[in-house]
């Protein structure tokens, strides 16, 4: 698991209290019992933590966590993949 996916996992478990056993790269956001405002909160958190222009319309319920990690990686730059938030 790359660093960005690990970070997303940490945010979901610690800030949104999602059980860790429900989180896989193939899990869709809509399967995590997060309402629409929680998805915006997740977007703002990732935007701040990685200092990236992550748009609110990008973080959709149908996005998988693996795809979300890919979007963040693309915006943050490949060198961030092994770095720290």
């Amino acid at each position: 698991m790359n660093t960005i996916l690990e970070h997303i996992t940490t945010v979901l478990t610690e800030k949104f209290e999602v059980p860790a056993d429900r989180i896989t790269p193939r899990t869709m956001l809509k399967d995590l019992d997060l309402d629409s405002l929680a998805l915006v909160e997740l977007q703002v958190t990732l935007q701040e933590d990685w200092n990236i222009p992550l748009d609110e319309s990008t973080v959709t319920p149908e996005l998988t966590l693996g795809e979300l990690a890919g979007v963040v990686t693309a915006l943050a730059g490949p060198e961030q993949e092994s770095g720290h938030a």
Binding site: L37, L39, V40, E41, Q43, V44, Q47, E56, S57
Partner: peptide, 10 residues
């Protein structure tokens, strides 16, 4: 609403 939420927080 969603866009405003994000802007308001930041």
């Amino acid at each position: 609403g969603r866009a405003v939420y994000a802007h308001a927080v930041r």
